[in-house]
Amino acid sequence: MPASMEMNPNIWTTKELILIFMYGSLYLLSLVYAIWQGCRATKQRWYWICCAILIVAGTLTMIYAAPDSPDSGEMPRQFALGVWPMLLGLLGAVAGMAAHVLRRLFMRPVA
């Protein structure tokens, strides 16, 4: 990029839009799958309910967190307290989905 061109932070590149779409899809898929399995599952119902609760509680904490230092440039501690539970719920849901897929692939009855 030429040195004379300025970067406008309000213009998103195609790469950024694709990443936002992918992360949003991962978030919604994990949340919907955790809720669906929480309503449907018989063995691991509490696992899926806890994953859904962590995702929702972390998101609400991030949304309603009042920053303690808005002009410092650092992530506020209250926001980080919402990020970690949400990520834990997302990782738990994704790990559960992966275990479910692997179980379906490799535990097929031999004909």
Rank of each mutant, 00 (worst) to 15 (best):
E74A: 12
T59F: 02
K43D: 07
M75G: 00
L91M: 14
L91E: 01
G58K: 01
M62A: 05
I35D: 03
W48V: 01
A34N: 07
M75I: 11
Y47A: 01
I49W: 09
I49H: 06
A80D: 06
V56E: 02
G73V: 08
T42G: 14
Y64K: 05
V56F: 00
P76T: 03
P76I: 09
P85D: 07
Y33N: 07
T42V: 15
G73K: 07
L54Q: 04
V56A: 09
W48Y: 14
M86P: 00
Q44F: 12
R77P: 00
M75C: 07
D68C: 00
G38S: 11
E74Q: 11
L81D: 11
A57D: 06
K43T: 13
W46H: 10
W46C: 02
P67N: 12
W48G: 01
R77F: 04
A41P: 00
A57G: 03
I49N: 05
C50K: 04
D68K: 11
A65V: 08
Q78G: 14
V32W: 12
P76C: 06
W46P: 02
S30T: 05
I63D: 08
V56I: 15
G89L: 08
R77N: 11
Y64R: 04
S30I: 06
T61N: 05
Y33F: 15
S69T: 12
V83R: 11
A57L: 14
L87A: 13
R40K: 15
Y64W: 15
G89W: 00
T59S: 13
A34H: 05
